[in-house]
């Protein structure tokens, strides 16, 4: 059973408290090759990157550029053909199956384009899933407090007993976001979290992501092809043909304005 850090402990980490050099996630020369129909297809060609603790990084690129594959490698969902991923001091690519599971449970949170909620569990139970998987009673103590906290953060207080099919798409994605954040992971990995949502709901989700980063120091890596979404990030890495083509430093801002990013992307031909 993993230890549950107290909320105060987690909050005391504050926004963007760096380690020795402030890096929480590193990738070195990642290469990923798939075998498709008898031939090898290399999706990533030696990608290297660093993400600082509390930083909000967006990975942008066209379809098939390898950004989702990169995210999967960073989160330990898949293994690179070569290269290394180091998350919070652990070399993810060298972990055993059991260690990788523990890492995912304790240090990462995922949000996907499809909300992937368990249809027969209610909102509370879906959010509590990481605790129950870890064998922690989600109705008591620290875990219960965290669930309430995260539900407040995503504005779902009062919907605890609702089942996914009783929620709107935006609400479902907020449940998925709450589920990813409830364990206060070292890093949140979001793969096109607004890809299935309308404009208004997308805005709400992006706002929640940004606030978790800004107010709670949550490190986030967001994969998107939407410039408006990427504009919430501190830094945008542009992926093309399996490599990082450009890096756009936007910095932390109170007002999110996508126009500078769109302009820059246009200069890059995206």
């Amino acid at each position: 059973m993993p230890s549950v850090p107290s909320p105060s402990e987690a909050r005391s980490s504050g926004p963007a408290v760096p380690g020795r050099d402030g890096t929480i996630l590193e990738a070195h020369n990642l290469i990923k090759t798939f075998r498709l129909g008898g031939r090898d297809v290399t999706v990533l060609h030696g990608v290297s990157l660093k993400v600082k603790r509390g930083e909000f990084v967006a990975l942008m690129g066209p379809s098939g550029s390898g950004k989702s594959t990169l995210l999967q490698l960073l989160g330990g969902l898949d293994r690179p053909t070569s290269g290394e991923v180091i998350l919070d001091g652990e070399v993810v690519s060298r972990l055993s199956e059991g260690e990788a599971t523990r890492l995912r449970r304790d240090k990462t949170g995922f949000v996907f384009q499809f909300f992937n909620l368990i249809p027969l569990l209610d909102v509370y139970e879906n959010v509590a899933l990481p605790f129950t998987i870890a064998g922690v009673d989600p109705r008591r103590g620290e875990a219960a407090a965290r669930i309430v906290d995260v539900l407040e953060m995503v504005d779902l207080v009062g919907c605890e007993r609702n089942r996914p099919d009783q929620l709107s798409a935006g609400e479902q994605q907020r449940v998925a976001l709450a589920r990813a954040l409830v364990c206060r992971p070292a890093i949140l990995l979001a793969d096109e979290p607004t890809g299935n949502l309308d404009y208004a709901n997308s805005g709400q989700i992006l706002d929640k992501l940004w606030r978790s980063c800004d107010e709670r120091g949550q490190t986030i890596v967001l994969v998107t092809h939407d410039a408006r979404a990427a504009a919430h990030a501190d830094r945008v890495l542009v992926i093309g043909d399996g490599a990082i083509r450009d890096e756009i430093e936007l910095g932390r801002r109170k007002e999110i304005d996508p126009r500078p990013l769109i302009t820059r992307l246009a200069q890059l031909g995206l």
């Binding site: 989160g75 969902l77 199956e97 059991g98 599971t101 523990r102 995912r104 449970r105 304790d106 990462t108 949170g109 995922f110 996907f112 499809f114 992937n116 368990i118 899933l129 990481p130 998987i133 870890a134 589920r179 990813a180």
Partner: peptide
């Protein structure tokens, strides 16, 4: 399948 994928991504072990 996808639901199981999410559970695994959330930290459920293959044994679970």
């Amino acid at each position: 399948a996808r639901e199981i994928g999410v559970l695994r991504a959330t930290g459920m072990s293959s044994r679970q």
